[in-house]
Design a protein around this nucleic acid. Sequence first.
DNA 1: ATTCTCATGTAATTGGTTACATGATTGC
DNA 2: GCAATCATGTAACCAATTACATGAGAAT
Lengths: 181, 181
Amino acid sequence: MQLSPTAYVILGMLSFGPKSGYEIKGLVDKSTRFFWAASYGQIYPELKRLSEAGLANATDSPQGERRRTVYELTDEGRDALHVWLAEPPQVFEMRNEGMLKLFFAGELDPPEQVRMVRALGAQHAAKLGALREIEPHAAEVPDSFPYLVLRYGIAFNEGAVEWCEREADRLESRLATAGSR
Amino acid sequence: MQLSPTAYVILGMLSFGPKSGYEIKGLVDKSTRFFWAASYGQIYPELKRLSEAGLANATDSPQGERRRTVYELTDEGRDALHVWLAEPPQVFEMRNEGMLKLFFAGELDPPEQVRMVRALGAQHAAKLGALREIEPHAAEVPDSFPYLVLRYGIAFNEGAVEWCEREADRLESRLATAGSR
DNA sequence: ATTCTCATGTAATTGGTTACATGATTGC
DNA sequence: GCAATCATGTAACCAATTACATGAGAAT
Protein backbone atom coordinates (compact mmCIF):
# COMPACT_ATOMS: atom_id res chain seq x y z
CA MET A 1 0.00 0.00 0.00
CA GLN A 2 1.48 3.27 -1.20
CA LEU A 3 1.04 6.32 1.03
CA SER A 4 1.30 9.94 -0.05
CA PRO A 5 3.66 12.35 1.71
CA THR A 6 0.51 13.95 3.15
CA ALA A 7 -0.31 10.64 4.86
CA TYR A 8 3.16 10.71 6.40
CA VAL A 9 2.60 14.23 7.69
CA ILE A 10 -0.28 12.78 9.67
CA LEU A 11 1.67 9.74 10.84
CA GLY A 12 4.51 12.07 11.80
CA MET A 13 2.24 14.32 13.84
CA LEU A 14 0.80 11.26 15.56
CA SER A 15 4.36 10.19 16.43
CA PHE A 16 4.39 13.15 18.86
CA GLY A 17 1.37 11.61 20.61
CA PRO A 18 -2.34 10.85 20.05
CA LYS A 19 -4.29 13.62 18.34
CA SER A 20 -7.63 14.54 16.81
CA GLY A 21 -7.90 15.64 13.17
CA TYR A 22 -8.52 19.17 14.37
CA GLU A 23 -5.35 19.17 16.44
CA ILE A 24 -3.31 17.79 13.53
CA LYS A 25 -4.60 20.57 11.30
CA GLY A 26 -3.63 23.14 13.92
CA LEU A 27 -0.12 21.73 14.25
CA VAL A 28 0.38 21.55 10.48
CA ASP A 29 -0.72 25.19 10.17
CA LYS A 30 1.98 26.43 12.50
CA SER A 31 4.77 24.14 11.36
CA THR A 32 4.95 22.05 8.21
CA ARG A 33 2.63 24.24 6.16
CA PHE A 34 5.62 26.29 5.02
CA PHE A 35 6.92 23.28 3.10
CA TRP A 36 3.97 20.86 3.16
CA ALA A 37 0.42 22.11 3.70
CA ALA A 38 -2.67 19.99 4.41
CA SER A 39 -6.37 20.89 4.54
CA TYR A 40 -9.29 19.30 6.41
CA GLY A 41 -10.40 17.90 3.06
CA GLN A 42 -7.24 15.77 3.11
CA ILE A 43 -6.77 15.15 6.80
CA TYR A 44 -10.11 13.63 7.75
CA PRO A 45 -10.41 11.15 4.85
CA GLU A 46 -6.73 10.26 5.26
CA LEU A 47 -7.15 9.54 8.97
CA LYS A 48 -9.98 7.18 8.10
CA ARG A 49 -7.81 5.41 5.52
CA LEU A 50 -4.87 5.15 7.93
CA SER A 51 -7.01 3.59 10.61
CA GLU A 52 -8.54 1.15 8.08
CA ALA A 53 -5.00 0.23 7.02
CA GLY A 54 -4.08 -0.45 10.65
CA LEU A 55 -1.49 2.34 10.83
CA ALA A 56 -3.49 4.36 13.36
CA ASN A 57 -6.09 3.52 15.98
CA ALA A 58 -9.24 5.62 16.31
CA THR A 59 -10.77 6.15 19.75
CA ASP A 60 -13.91 8.13 20.51
CA SER A 61 -13.17 10.66 23.22
CA PRO A 62 -16.00 13.19 23.31
CA GLN A 63 -15.71 16.33 25.45
CA GLY A 64 -19.15 16.53 27.00
CA GLU A 65 -21.65 16.49 24.14
CA ARG A 66 -19.01 17.50 21.64
CA ARG A 67 -17.88 14.45 19.71
CA ARG A 68 -14.19 13.93 19.14
CA THR A 69 -12.08 11.14 17.68
CA VAL A 70 -8.49 10.76 18.77
CA TYR A 71 -6.02 8.77 16.69
CA GLU A 72 -2.87 7.14 17.90
CA LEU A 73 -0.01 5.54 15.98
CA THR A 74 0.08 1.75 15.92
CA ASP A 75 3.38 -0.16 15.83
CA GLU A 76 2.83 -0.77 12.11
CA GLY A 77 2.19 2.96 11.67
CA ARG A 78 5.46 3.80 13.37
CA ASP A 79 7.29 1.24 11.22
CA ALA A 80 5.79 2.72 8.06
CA LEU A 81 6.90 6.18 9.19
CA HIS A 82 10.47 4.98 9.84
CA VAL A 83 10.70 3.25 6.45
CA TRP A 84 9.54 6.41 4.68
CA LEU A 85 11.91 8.62 6.67
CA ALA A 86 14.90 6.49 5.65
CA GLU A 87 14.06 6.68 1.92
CA PRO A 88 15.60 9.49 -0.13
CA PRO A 89 13.24 12.46 -0.57
CA GLN A 90 11.51 12.69 -3.96
CA VAL A 91 9.16 15.65 -4.22
CA PHE A 92 10.50 19.15 -4.44
CA GLU A 93 8.09 21.57 -6.10
CA MET A 94 7.71 25.28 -5.97
CA ARG A 95 5.19 27.80 -7.23
CA ASN A 96 6.82 31.17 -6.73
CA GLU A 97 4.88 33.94 -8.45
CA GLY A 98 7.37 36.58 -7.31
CA MET A 99 10.25 34.80 -9.04
CA LEU A 100 8.10 34.38 -12.11
CA LYS A 101 7.39 38.09 -12.27
CA LEU A 102 11.06 38.87 -11.78
CA PHE A 103 11.91 36.55 -14.67
CA PHE A 104 9.83 38.71 -17.01
CA ALA A 105 10.69 42.05 -15.39
CA GLY A 106 12.64 43.18 -18.47
CA GLU A 107 9.26 44.07 -19.96
CA LEU A 108 8.79 46.97 -17.54
CA ASP A 109 10.71 50.20 -17.32
CA PRO A 110 13.66 50.34 -14.89
CA PRO A 111 11.99 52.10 -11.91
CA GLU A 112 9.24 49.47 -11.91
CA GLN A 113 11.88 46.74 -12.11
CA VAL A 114 13.40 48.03 -8.89
CA ARG A 115 9.97 48.07 -7.24
CA MET A 116 9.48 44.44 -8.24
CA VAL A 117 12.72 43.25 -6.68
CA ARG A 118 11.73 45.12 -3.51
CA ALA A 119 8.28 43.49 -3.65
CA LEU A 120 9.93 40.07 -3.76
CA GLY A 121 12.05 41.11 -0.80
CA ALA A 122 8.90 42.19 1.04
CA GLN A 123 7.35 38.78 0.36
CA HIS A 124 10.33 37.08 1.97
CA ALA A 125 10.35 39.59 4.83
CA ALA A 126 6.70 38.78 5.55
CA LYS A 127 7.45 35.05 5.64
CA LEU A 128 10.45 35.76 7.86
CA GLY A 129 8.19 37.67 10.24
CA ALA A 130 5.75 34.75 10.40
CA LEU A 131 8.59 32.33 11.15
CA ARG A 132 10.09 34.54 13.84
CA GLU A 133 6.73 34.66 15.57
CA ILE A 134 6.85 30.89 15.89
CA GLU A 135 10.49 30.83 17.00
CA PRO A 136 10.22 31.42 20.77
CA HIS A 137 7.65 28.64 20.94
CA ALA A 138 9.84 26.23 18.94
CA ALA A 139 13.03 27.18 20.79
CA GLU A 140 11.59 25.57 23.92
CA VAL A 141 12.95 22.29 22.56
CA PRO A 142 16.34 23.61 21.35
CA ASP A 143 17.80 20.40 19.94
CA SER A 144 14.61 19.24 18.21
CA PHE A 145 14.24 18.79 14.47
CA PRO A 146 11.19 21.05 14.23
CA TYR A 147 13.39 23.82 15.62
CA LEU A 148 16.20 22.90 13.22
CA VAL A 149 13.80 23.14 10.29
CA LEU A 150 12.48 26.48 11.53
CA ARG A 151 16.01 27.85 11.70
CA TYR A 152 16.55 26.68 8.14
CA GLY A 153 13.45 28.61 7.04
CA ILE A 154 14.61 31.70 8.89
CA ALA A 155 18.12 31.47 7.42
CA PHE A 156 16.76 31.05 3.91
CA ASN A 157 14.36 33.97 4.15
CA GLU A 158 16.99 36.19 5.74
CA GLY A 159 19.29 35.37 2.85
CA ALA A 160 16.55 36.10 0.36
CA VAL A 161 15.68 39.46 1.93
CA GLU A 162 19.34 40.50 1.81
CA TRP A 163 19.73 39.26 -1.74
CA CYS A 164 16.69 41.29 -2.88
CA GLU A 165 17.95 44.45 -1.17
CA ARG A 166 21.40 44.06 -2.68
CA GLU A 167 20.06 43.43 -6.17
CA ALA A 168 17.51 46.24 -5.92
CA ASP A 169 20.30 48.62 -4.90
CA ARG A 170 22.47 47.42 -7.76
CA LEU A 171 19.65 47.95 -10.26
CA GLU A 172 18.96 51.37 -8.83
CA SER A 173 22.57 52.51 -9.06
CA ARG A 174 22.84 51.16 -12.60
CA LEU A 175 19.70 53.17 -13.37
CA ALA A 176 21.22 56.35 -11.93
CA THR A 177 24.45 56.00 -13.95
CA ALA A 178 22.49 55.27 -17.13
CA GLY A 179 20.40 58.40 -16.55
CA SER A 180 23.45 60.68 -16.23
CA ARG A 181 25.26 59.25 -19.24
CA MET B 1 -11.20 38.00 -17.44
CA GLN B 2 -9.00 36.42 -14.79
CA LEU B 3 -5.82 34.71 -15.98
CA SER B 4 -3.80 32.16 -14.03
CA PRO B 5 -0.08 32.64 -13.40
CA THR B 6 0.44 29.82 -15.91
CA ALA B 7 -1.26 31.94 -18.57
CA TYR B 8 1.22 34.71 -17.76
CA VAL B 9 4.14 32.32 -18.14
CA ILE B 10 2.97 31.87 -21.72
CA LEU B 11 2.40 35.59 -22.31
CA GLY B 12 5.83 36.23 -20.81
CA MET B 13 7.52 33.72 -23.09
CA LEU B 14 5.75 35.28 -26.07
CA SER B 15 7.08 38.68 -24.96
CA PHE B 16 10.53 37.40 -26.06
CA GLY B 17 9.12 36.86 -29.57
CA PRO B 18 6.60 34.67 -31.46
CA LYS B 19 6.67 31.01 -30.51
CA SER B 20 4.96 27.67 -31.02
CA GLY B 21 3.52 25.73 -28.08
CA TYR B 22 6.37 23.26 -28.44
CA GLU B 23 8.97 26.01 -28.20
CA ILE B 24 7.28 27.51 -25.14
CA LYS B 25 7.35 24.14 -23.42
CA GLY B 26 11.06 23.80 -24.21
CA LEU B 27 11.83 27.25 -22.81
CA VAL B 28 9.79 26.65 -19.64
CA ASP B 29 11.63 23.36 -19.09
CA LYS B 30 15.01 25.02 -19.00
CA SER B 31 14.05 28.15 -17.11
CA THR B 32 10.87 28.82 -15.14
CA ARG B 33 10.20 25.18 -14.30
CA PHE B 34 12.31 25.56 -11.16
CA PHE B 35 9.70 27.93 -9.72
CA TRP B 36 6.76 27.54 -12.12
CA ALA B 37 6.33 24.42 -14.24
CA ALA B 38 3.90 23.92 -17.13
CA SER B 39 2.94 20.81 -19.12
CA TYR B 40 1.60 20.40 -22.67
CA GLY B 41 -1.77 19.66 -21.10
CA GLN B 42 -1.82 23.24 -19.86
CA ILE B 43 0.08 25.04 -22.61
CA TYR B 44 -1.93 24.05 -25.68
CA PRO B 45 -5.42 24.70 -24.26
CA GLU B 46 -4.18 27.94 -22.70
CA LEU B 47 -2.74 29.17 -26.00
CA LYS B 48 -6.12 28.60 -27.58
CA ARG B 49 -7.85 30.55 -24.81
CA LEU B 50 -5.34 33.40 -25.03
CA SER B 51 -5.86 33.73 -28.76
CA GLU B 52 -9.65 33.62 -28.32
CA ALA B 53 -9.32 36.36 -25.71
CA GLY B 54 -7.31 38.47 -28.15
CA LEU B 55 -4.13 38.41 -26.07
CA ALA B 56 -2.18 36.39 -28.65
CA ASN B 57 -2.43 35.91 -32.40
CA ALA B 58 -2.22 32.43 -33.92
CA THR B 59 -0.58 32.00 -37.32
CA ASP B 60 -0.18 28.73 -39.18
CA SER B 61 3.43 28.30 -40.20
CA PRO B 62 3.96 24.67 -41.24
CA GLN B 63 7.46 23.37 -41.89
CA GLY B 64 6.93 21.31 -45.02
CA GLU B 65 4.16 18.82 -44.27
CA ARG B 66 4.63 19.24 -40.53
CA ARG B 67 1.94 21.49 -39.15
CA ARG B 68 2.90 24.26 -36.76
CA THR B 69 1.09 27.17 -35.15
CA VAL B 70 3.06 30.19 -34.04
CA TYR B 71 1.62 32.62 -31.52
CA GLU B 72 2.59 36.21 -31.06
CA LEU B 73 1.67 38.69 -28.36
CA THR B 74 -0.96 41.31 -29.28
CA ASP B 75 -0.85 44.83 -27.81
CA GLU B 76 -3.61 43.82 -25.40
CA GLY B 77 -1.60 40.76 -24.46
CA ARG B 78 1.42 42.90 -23.66
CA ASP B 79 -0.74 45.28 -21.63
CA ALA B 80 -2.20 42.37 -19.65
CA LEU B 81 1.33 41.11 -18.97
CA HIS B 82 2.46 44.54 -17.74
CA VAL B 83 -0.54 44.92 -15.45
CA TRP B 84 0.11 41.51 -13.91
CA LEU B 85 3.84 42.21 -13.50
CA ALA B 86 3.13 45.40 -11.56
CA GLU B 87 0.77 43.66 -9.11
CA PRO B 88 2.23 42.25 -5.89
CA PRO B 89 2.98 38.51 -6.13
CA GLN B 90 0.44 36.25 -4.43
CA VAL B 91 1.29 32.58 -4.78
CA PHE B 92 4.19 31.07 -2.90
CA GLU B 93 3.84 27.35 -2.37
CA MET B 94 6.31 24.63 -1.66
CA ARG B 95 6.21 20.87 -1.42
CA ASN B 96 9.55 19.87 0.04
CA GLU B 97 9.61 16.23 1.05
CA GLY B 98 13.20 16.50 2.30
CA MET B 99 12.26 19.22 4.80
CA LEU B 100 9.25 17.19 5.84
CA LYS B 101 11.40 14.17 6.59
CA LEU B 102 13.85 16.31 8.50
CA PHE B 103 10.98 17.69 10.58
CA PHE B 104 10.19 14.19 11.81
CA ALA B 105 13.79 12.97 11.96
CA GLY B 106 13.69 12.72 15.76
CA GLU B 107 11.91 9.39 15.25
CA LEU B 108 15.09 7.79 13.90
CA ASP B 109 18.31 7.00 15.70
CA PRO B 110 21.11 9.59 15.53
CA PRO B 111 23.29 8.04 12.75
CA GLU B 112 20.24 7.92 10.47
CA GLN B 113 19.44 11.51 11.37
CA VAL B 114 22.84 12.57 10.08
CA ARG B 115 22.27 10.62 6.86
CA MET B 116 18.98 12.44 6.37
CA VAL B 117 20.50 15.89 6.67
CA ARG B 118 23.15 14.83 4.16
CA ALA B 119 20.40 13.49 1.86
CA LEU B 120 18.72 16.90 1.95
CA GLY B 121 22.06 18.47 1.14
CA ALA B 122 22.45 16.07 -1.79
CA GLN B 123 19.00 17.10 -3.07
CA HIS B 124 20.09 20.74 -3.09
CA ALA B 125 23.46 19.84 -4.63
CA ALA B 126 21.67 18.08 -7.48
CA LYS B 127 19.48 21.11 -8.13
CA LEU B 128 22.58 23.30 -7.96
CA GLY B 129 24.24 21.12 -10.59
CA ALA B 130 21.24 21.45 -12.89
CA LEU B 131 21.26 25.22 -12.50
CA ARG B 132 24.99 25.51 -13.13
CA GLU B 133 24.57 23.60 -16.36
CA ILE B 134 22.22 26.29 -17.58
CA GLU B 135 24.42 29.13 -16.36
CA PRO B 136 26.88 29.61 -19.27
CA HIS B 137 23.89 29.73 -21.63
CA ALA B 138 22.06 32.31 -19.49
CA ALA B 139 25.21 34.38 -18.84
CA GLU B 140 25.24 35.34 -22.52
CA VAL B 141 22.81 38.11 -21.57
CA PRO B 142 24.52 39.22 -18.35
CA ASP B 143 22.16 42.00 -17.28
CA SER B 144 18.95 40.11 -18.07
CA PHE B 145 16.34 39.13 -15.51
CA PRO B 146 16.41 35.45 -16.46
CA TYR B 147 20.08 35.48 -15.53
CA LEU B 148 19.35 37.38 -12.31
CA VAL B 149 16.77 34.76 -11.35
CA LEU B 150 19.18 31.95 -12.17
CA ARG B 151 21.81 33.49 -9.91
CA TYR B 152 19.21 33.69 -7.16
CA GLY B 153 18.53 29.97 -7.56
CA ILE B 154 22.23 29.19 -7.49
CA ALA B 155 22.81 31.35 -4.41
CA PHE B 156 19.90 29.76 -2.57
CA ASN B 157 20.99 26.20 -3.33
CA GLU B 158 24.62 26.95 -2.45
CA GLY B 159 23.42 28.31 0.87
CA ALA B 160 21.27 25.25 1.43
CA VAL B 161 24.11 22.83 0.65
CA GLU B 162 26.40 24.62 3.10
CA TRP B 163 23.70 24.76 5.74
CA CYS B 164 23.10 21.00 5.44
CA GLU B 165 26.80 20.21 5.70
CA ARG B 166 27.22 22.45 8.73
CA GLU B 167 24.19 21.00 10.51
CA ALA B 168 25.14 17.42 9.63
CA ASP B 169 28.62 18.03 11.07
CA ARG B 170 27.13 19.55 14.21
CA LEU B 171 24.82 16.58 14.68
CA GLU B 172 27.69 14.19 14.11
CA SER B 173 29.94 15.86 16.66
CA ARG B 174 27.11 16.00 19.17
CA LEU B 175 26.64 12.28 18.56
CA ALA B 176 30.35 11.60 19.18
CA THR B 177 30.37 13.53 22.47
CA ALA B 178 27.18 11.83 23.61
CA GLY B 179 28.74 8.44 22.85
CA SER B 180 31.85 9.09 24.97
CA ARG B 181 29.95 10.55 27.91
C1' DA C 1 -26.91 37.50 22.44
C1' DT C 2 -22.92 36.89 19.81
C1' DT C 3 -18.59 35.54 18.51
C1' DC C 4 -14.78 32.47 18.83
C1' DT C 5 -12.83 28.10 19.18
C1' DC C 6 -13.40 23.14 19.04
C1' DA C 7 -14.83 19.51 16.10
C1' DT C 8 -16.02 16.54 11.87
C1' DG C 9 -17.05 15.73 7.55
C1' DT C 10 -18.51 16.02 2.30
C1' DA C 11 -19.09 18.01 -2.41
C1' DA C 12 -17.68 20.84 -5.94
C1' DT C 13 -14.13 22.68 -8.20
C1' DT C 14 -9.43 23.76 -9.58
C1' DG C 15 -5.01 23.13 -11.25
C1' DG C 16 -2.12 20.19 -12.85
C1' DT C 17 0.31 15.67 -14.45
C1' DT C 18 0.54 11.55 -17.18
C1' DA C 19 -0.66 8.71 -20.65
C1' DC C 20 -2.27 8.24 -25.00
C1' DA C 21 -2.78 9.16 -29.98
C1' DT C 22 -0.94 10.80 -34.20
C1' DG C 23 2.28 12.09 -37.60
C1' DA C 24 6.34 14.59 -40.14
C1' DT C 25 11.47 15.52 -40.37
C1' DT C 26 16.23 14.90 -39.35
C1' DG C 27 20.38 12.53 -38.36
C1' DC C 28 22.79 8.27 -37.61
C1' DG D 1 15.76 1.29 -41.18
C1' DC D 2 15.50 3.39 -36.62
C1' DA D 3 15.76 6.64 -33.09
C1' DA D 4 15.47 11.29 -31.80
C1' DT D 5 13.31 15.52 -32.29
C1' DC D 6 9.58 18.51 -33.81
C1' DA D 7 4.77 19.19 -33.31
C1' DT D 8 -0.25 19.20 -31.53
C1' DG D 9 -3.74 17.84 -28.99
C1' DT D 10 -7.16 15.15 -25.72
C1' DA D 11 -8.72 12.12 -21.94
C1' DA D 12 -8.13 10.14 -17.65
C1' DC D 13 -6.66 10.84 -13.49
C1' DC D 14 -4.87 12.88 -9.11
C1' DA D 15 -3.94 15.98 -5.37
C1' DA D 16 -5.52 19.55 -3.07
C1' DT D 17 -8.31 23.72 -1.98
C1' DT D 18 -12.59 25.94 -0.98
C1' DA D 19 -17.03 26.16 0.23
C1' DC D 20 -20.58 24.25 2.53
C1' DA D 21 -23.07 22.00 6.35
C1' DT D 22 -23.57 21.04 11.12
C1' DG D 23 -23.24 21.57 15.94
C1' DA D 24 -21.26 21.96 20.98
C1' DG D 25 -18.76 24.73 24.47
C1' DA D 26 -16.39 28.89 26.13
C1' DA D 27 -15.74 33.62 26.49
C1' DT D 28 -17.24 38.45 25.99
